[in-house]
Design a protein around this nucleic acid. Structure first.
Lengths: 260, 260
DNA sequence: CCTTTATATTACTCTGACATATTGATTTGA
DNA sequence: TCAAATCAATATGTCAGAGTAATATAAAGG
């Protein structure tokens, strides 16, 4: 993930640790990562969460930047990031306004992270899983056609790691991601790789929710093994079917966790 | 498309139209759009075309910005855009380096535009069409399930426009896009919409190539009508199959145009 | 009523300075 | 001799203020 990462930004407190502060508490702010990154995160999250709505126009650069107590440069660089992701558009005289949702790069990893930093829209989560249910089985079919020995080894290693740890641990989740990435890599399709990298990140979010609400009810390894076996055997139909099952189960788990 | 658009940036000539120029010819540069946008386009295109390769580190901000004869601010804002799209990463002391290809947001509309502003990598084009062949039929199936009356009207209107104009005209291509967008909108899936918006833009590029090399050999309307009929009838299987045919034919046309 | 011109507002660009973080060498200690 | 801590060099990060260019709105003219 690029600059603004997933772990919640610690509240950018202005620590007034100075003692004889005759001067206003300036220059000593945010603890977070790079400043413009933090601002982009803040604004981006506010936009995708609906706090600012499409068509709304942000207060001018000078006003907003000094409201945030940052320089105009930092604020502008943050806005450039948002603009690059299709969230806002700036024009002279008009100001900076939020673009219609249709122009947002919803599959951008950062945008997804912002979307999931608050209360994720259940409708959108459904969309993501639906897309995943479309893409991943097709990817498994391609992988069954094109996999090389090295790909299969990657998958085996990931499976072994999944067996060792569980999905409750970070190592286990990483192994899960590794497995899916290995399948993707075996398709020799760059567009597929980057797409499901985004989706996978989002799905990882929902997985955390799942863990939070109830202990994981199912051992995911056998389903993954079925996918592996079919891919290793070059069984195109079987690979697609096994992956479809896998995604459906994940959707089912997450849905019950979110709605229940 | 967001800021940096498709039409070739007119060469950013430094017009030295001043007569008694004792001063260096500054402040009067690039005719193009916003300055940082132009620079982002230039650098982005250079990166995706392989001129700078992953791991390469760009010359420092001061050096590079004055080599381009722009201020550091403008250069930095451009780099922020590239960073937001996962092309580069900047760190103190280390400098700005090109990230591995796996971290590029290849489905970002701007990145796609940059990729297609030069000689498009035929391998990557193949990946895009493969992805399209996966997603669009699935979208057609969903559309057949969920379409409302208004969706069908949109599709009919687009079809009518396609009949009036041809794919050789801009109006015709717009109608083609409208039809596909209508199908997408009928799926009620935001993730699908934004994804195929990207792919569609890229495909539109290749369509232009197609037109350039040979007069269009096939009337696309009947195939589109078949898709419409199936969706209107709620025929899930038929809709998927008809769309699959449509995408396959487009791929065939483009492949022969690019390789021949 | 429509077109054209003026104007005010806003983002855009530039400049130059300082702060901060990270690397790599240097020094110190075991 | 090797390892850990220290320090300096360097490039990005942030700040401040001034001036430019573009554009929507209002005003003037046809």
């Amino acid at each position: 993930m690029s600059d603004t990462d997933m772990p919640e930004t610690p509240p950018p407190v202005v620590q007034t640790d100075d003692d004889a502060s005759t001067t206003t508490p300036r220059t000593r702010r945010g603890t977070g990562r790079r400043l413009h990154g933090a601002i982009a995160h803040k604004l981006g999250a506010a936009i995708v969460s609906g706090e600012y709505r499409p068509g709304d126009t942000l207060s001018g650069e000078v006003a907003f930047s000094e409201a945030l107590d940052v320089s105009r440069s930092a604020y502008r660089e943050a806005v450039q990031v948002l603009s690059a992701k299709g969230l806002v558009e700036s024009r002279p005289k008009t100001g900076t306004r939020v673009l219609p949702r249709s122009r947002w790069n919803l599959l951008d990893p950062d945008v997804l992270a912002w979307a999931f930093s608050g209360e994720p829209d259940i409708h959108f989560v459904r969309s993501l899983f639906e897309l995943r249910a479309i893409v991943e089985p097709a990817a498994a079919r391609l992988a069954a056609e094109r996999r090389e020995k090295a790909d299969l080894k990657e998958m085996r290693d990931a499976l072994a790691a999944m067996r060792r740890h569980t999905l409750a641990t970070e190592a286990g989740r990483a192994a899960d991601r590794d497995f899916h990435n290995a399948v993707l890599a075996a398709t020799r399709n760059d567009a597929l790789v980057v797409l499901t990298a985004s989706i996978g990140a989002a799905v990882a979010w929902t997985t955390q929710f799942k863990q939070r609400s109830r202990a994981l009810p199912r051992n995911p390894v056998p389903d993954h093994v079925k996918v592996y076996d079919a891919i290793a055997a070059g069984d195109v139909e079987g690979a697609g079917e096994a992956m479809r099952l896998l995604v459906d189960l994940a959707l089912e788990d997450t849905r019950s966790a979110m709605e229940g």
